Amino acid sequence: MARAVDVAKYILSKTGEMTAMKLQKLVYYSQAWSLVWDESPLFEDDIQAWANGPVVQVLYDYHKGQFKVNEDTFFDGDVDALTPNQKDSVEKVLEVLQNKSGQWLSELTHMESPWKEARGNLKPTERCSEVIPLAAMHEYYSSL
């Protein structure tokens, strides 16, 4: 199975440099829509409900302290770890969302139940490492 770092590198191979926040949200939405369209996760790495929206800690560890990221940031990512079908799913997400800003995508996630439910009653700026369950993502996005 592909890893989140493989998905991140694939996204950046298609889009070029972007903010770390935007990449995190595109990886999140790629996972969400893969659950709906392909009925399986793209990767097994957890997605946490951070204050600025969903974040894959593993990816954060690569780009910590960087505002912008590119393919080189994820030096050991392997785009060939994704199947052609998985690449197609990611590309469909990019068609719709790649022109949105990281802030816009973050605000979108804040309106959706998977992130809100994982955070519970926390204040908007409070730290949180609660995992967003794949089942919650599948249920929410398949209802849209």
Rank of each mutant, 00 (worst) to 15 (best):
A2R: 01
R3L: 06
R3T: 09
K9A: 04
K9P: 02
I11R: 00
I11T: 03
L12Q: 00
L12D: 00
S13I: 04
S13W: 00
T15Q: 13
E17S: 14
K22N: 14
L23D: 02
Q24W: 03
V27D: 07
V27W: 04
S30W: 07
A32T: 08
L35I: 05
W37V: 15
D38I: 04
P41E: 04
E44Y: 14
A49L: 02
Q57P: 02
Q57W: 04
V58C: 05
Y62A: 08
K64E: 02
K68V: 02
D72G: 12
F74P: 01
F75G: 02
A81C: 05
L82S: 04
T83C: 05
P84F: 01
D88A: 11
S89G: 08
V90R: 06
V96A: 09
K100A: 09
L108D: 09
H110D: 15
P114T: 12
P114R: 06
E117A: 13
E117I: 14
A118S: 09
A118G: 11
R119N: 09
K123V: 10
E126A: 13
R127V: 06
R127T: 01
R127Y: 10
V131Y: 05
V131E: 13
P133I: 11
A135E: 15
M137Q: 15
E139F: 06
E139H: 15
Y141R: 11
S142I: 07
